[in-house]
């Protein structure tokens, strides 16, 4: 579907070097801290920027030097960039009018798309009067109107409040499955990336440091940076290697527990406590260092506890870790 072949492009601040591909019908997130090159990668796919080296292929066609207009891509910008001088309907129908589709067809498609994004009858609204969530839906409808083979979303939820964000996230997944379209989605939020993606490309300083399915990314991160970037990470030493344990792989042992085969018990003191609703998150100081543990029982800072884990659950981190 999309293939980056040794794409290199240099900027004053960093060099972007990407080499990966995205399969048809996948929902892929590009995840990374700010300044890591996420948006640039998306802009390269769209053709707003051109790489200095390498090729970008979409469906086997070399699009490296093709103008954005010729790429058949839908793009939703961070702030949606709805045209302020056009109504909702004119925004959604813009791409179709460019393609000189008959007015009746444009009207019908616009209506259909507004139904799809659950804004029926919004054609004549002024975009200035829409809420953030509505704008985003209109932007998605506008991007889908030309039946693109690929939909690119640049931090589409960043200006939307928490509750609505989750709904819209689910809606994008629903749309993506329903239309079977390939979606590439840029975010700096690991929850977002993990929640909706089939695969995630983690970018660090212009390099894809890991490109994997969400579970693999979470359980078997390639290095310490990825491990810490995608979630809470505990590192313990076992058999001479570093083991990664996620907080839910540790537990606080009850009174009298201990001595079980294949379980390591550590004395620890609770340093910090966070209430998460369904569970509690504890940071404990133990003989093996600082550990993050999830536990459903309420404890207090300063309590002495026993933290337990199975080394067999741990994922061995490779040596020579860059960070």
């Amino acid at each position: 579907m999309i293939e980056f072949r040794s794409v290199r492009t240099r900027y004053p601040e960093f060099e972007l070097a990407v080499d990966f591909s995205i399969a048809e019908g996948e929902l892929v997130s590009i995840l990374g801290p700010s300044g890591s090159g996420k948006t640039t990668t998306l802009r390269l796919i769209a053709g707003f920027e051109q790489p200095q080296e390498g090729q970008i292929l979409i469906n086997g066609r070399d699009v490296t030097h093709l103008s954005p207009a010729d790429r058949q891509i839908g793009y939703v910008f961070q702030d949606y960039t709805l045209f302020p001088h056009m109504s909702v309907g004119d925004n959604v129908g813009y791409g179709l009018r460019i393609r000189r589709r008959p007015a009746a067809e444009v009207r019908a498609t616009v209506a259909e798309l507004l139904d799809l994004v659950e804004l029926p009858g919004y054609q004549d609204r002024n975009v200035a009067t829409l809420s953030g969530g509505e704008r985003q839906r209109v932007a998605i409808a506008r991007a889908l109107a030309t039946r693109p083979v690929l939909l690119l979303l640049d931090e589409p939820f960043s200006s939307i409040d928490e509750v609505l964000r989750r709904d819209l996230r689910d809606e994008i997944v629903r749309l993506q499955k329903r239309l079977g379209i390939t979606v590439v989605f840029v975010t700096h939020s690991r929850q977002e990336a993990l929640a909706i993606s089939d695969r995630v490309a983690v970018l660090q300083a212009g390099q894809v440091v890991q490109y994997a399915g969400v579970e693999e990314l979470y359980r078997q991160p390639r290095d310490r940076f990825v491990a810490e970037f995608v979630g809470d990470a505990n590192f313990v030493t076992g058999d001479g290697t570093q083991l990664l344990l996620r907080p839910e792989q540790l537990w606080i042992a009850g009174e009298g527990d201990g001595g079980d085969e294949g379980i390591v018990y550590l004395d620890a003191e609770i340093e910090m406590h966070q209430y998460l609703g369904s569970t509690h998150r504890y940071a404990c100081r133990s003989t093996a260092g600082r550990l993050i543990v999830m536990d459903p029982r309420r404890r207090s800072v300063g309590d002495t506890v026993t933290v337990a884990y199975r080394p067999a659950d741990g994922f061995p981190m490779t040596e020579g870790d860059p960070s």
Partner: peptide, 17 residues
Amino acid sequence: DRRYRESAEILGDRGPG
């Protein structure tokens, strides 16, 4: 905002359009 222009381009518009 240059993204207005880019939005138009990605939707298939170009140059004078």
